[in-house]
């Protein structure tokens, strides 16, 4: 019963202070577009790193003396320990090499087929770090049938370092943008509350509890933050579509991220409104 009354109060307040409410929604939308863009960049950077990381593979070159049975046994062993294995015979390796060189004169200068057969391993996700790959390569190199192991150690180390740095940068930027949004939301809602200080004061003097005074403001703040968050998501979607069409294909936020973004903003609005009201109530000696 009281919830209905509080909702009516929130609607009344919103309608009566339309200008202030619209300003609050526009301010919040601007701040939230900024954080939405950050999420979009973070999401696409994550996708790009994942795609690059997925391409990490290890090439195990085999001795020329290795029999087909030994190849079969090694494939099974690597499959169970390291990931998906594909066998490239000496002839296949030569064909691939020939296609890459595209110069018959150069190929004719080579006597016979000097290329070794190899096992290419597309590593399991848990082995996609420089340390894990180094460890795996060390074990594999100790096998007598193995001539050499190549996995681009330096490149993998750099990629890992880049991923770590990007993750830290994302956390720092995320916290800073989050704080800026909270600060802006708090101040925007505090301004709305201050504009209705008389109402808060009168209610307090009449004996209204904190909950009675605060609830309609919280409803209103949550509504404003919800509208702002949806508008911000729509704008970020528009920007993503524009970038995809004009510059480079980028993905929009997954729906779980979008829902999380909305829910986080509603929670922040609730928190900001409660804090702002608490300050005003203390200031007026409620």
């Amino acid at each position: 019963m009281m919830q209905g009354f509080f909702l009516k109060e929130a609607v009344r307040s919103f309608r009566h202070h339309r200008g202030l409410a619209t300003t609050a929604i526009i301010s919040l939308t601007s701040a939230l577009v900024l954080s939405g863009m950050f999420l979009l960049v973070a999401h696409n950077a994550g996708l790009a790193l994942h795609t690059v990381g997925d391409r990490r593979e290890m090439v195990v070159y085999l001795n020329d003396s290795v029999s087909p049975d030994q190849v079969e046994a090694l494939s099974r062993q690597f499959e169970s320990s390291y990931g998906i294995v594909s066998y490239v015979s000496k002839d296949q390796a030569w064909t691939e090499f020939s296609e890459e060189i595209e110069d018959p004169a150069l190929l004719e200068a080579v006597e016979g087929n000097p290329l070794p057969a190899s096992l290419r391993i597309k590593l399991k996700p848990e082995l996609l770090t420089a340390t894990a790959m180094e460890e795996a390569a060390k074990h594999i190199a100790e096998i007598p049938e193995v001539e050499d192991v190549v996995y681009g150690g330096e490149w993998v180390r750099r990629l890992d370092e880049l991923t770590r740095n990007l993750q830290w940068a994302a956390i720092v930027a995320g916290v800073l943008i989050g704080l800026a949004v909270v600060f802006m939301m708090y101040n925007t809602i505090r301004l709305s509350v201050l504009a209705r200080r008389l109402q808060v004061e009168i209610m307090s003097r009449l004996g209204a509890t904190d909950g009675f005074i605060v609830t309609p403001f919280v409803f209103e703040a949550i509504f404003e933050a919800g509208v702002a968050a949806i508008a911000a998501l729509a704008l970020v979607f528009g920007i993503q579509q524009g970038i995809s069409a004009q510059v480079v294909p980028v993905a929009f936020l997954p729906w779980t991220w979008a829902l999380g973004f909305l829910a986080a903003n509603l929670m922040l609005a609730w928190l900001a409104a409660s804090l702002a009201l608490n300050r005003v109530l203390r200031a007026i000696g409620a």
């Binding site: 307090s204 003097r205 009449l206 004996g207 209204a208 509890t209 904190d210 109530l281 409620a286």
Partner: peptide, 9 residues
């Protein structure tokens, strides 16, 4: 604050 509200009523 709750007691103050009750008093004012």
């Amino acid at each position: 604050r709750a007691q103050r509200a009750l008093l004012r009523r």
